[in-house]
Amino acid sequence: MSDEIKKVNGIDEGFDEISEYFCDARPSPVSPSANRIVRNFQNWAQANSIFILGFGTGCGAIELRPLFTARYDVSRYGLFPRPTPRQSSLFIIGGYASIKTMKRIIRSYEQIQNPKFVMGLGSCTVNGGMYWDSYNTINRLDHYIPVDVYVAGCMPRPESLIAGFDRLKELIMEGKAEGANTYAENFDWYKNNQKKIIKNWNMPEYNW
């Protein structure tokens, strides 16, 4: 906000944008239902209705599109694209992630509700891929947000992605896809890693 606007609106010195405009609560892990039957049922529902938020950061995004076409049609498996993080549960990072992109990835990831799953798509998310020695792209996505499934390849074909979805479903059904809780439990570690690369951190600790 420029000084001029601040003056016009009578915003004084002590005005802190971040605390004024953003909720500053930290996330807390929410354990799944204690009842095994309920838990399994919920996991089954989660596994069979997956709303995808695709983050087309790199060339990998091009491989996401065919999934929804007649040739591959993942809606058969209960997977649907969803344009808003609030309603999605699967976050697909579609390739290399530069530092600037990471900020947006973190923001979107945090805006997804628990339980949430992340799929790293392509080698770049695994170890940096061909950008492994770049000054500006990360190497390991799982140091910044919890990743449930990596689909390696440069680029992986849609078939590989479907295989990845299958694996994800298995994990969800087994109750092993608890990334959101992992994130909440190791919140400080993740934040440290994130802040190590993101220098101008003009957002709250956790983007609700």
Partner: peptide
Amino acid sequence: TKKYSEETFFPREGR
């Protein structure tokens, strides 16, 4: 750049 990347971005073992 390689040094910077190794110092900053948690290079994955085994590469």
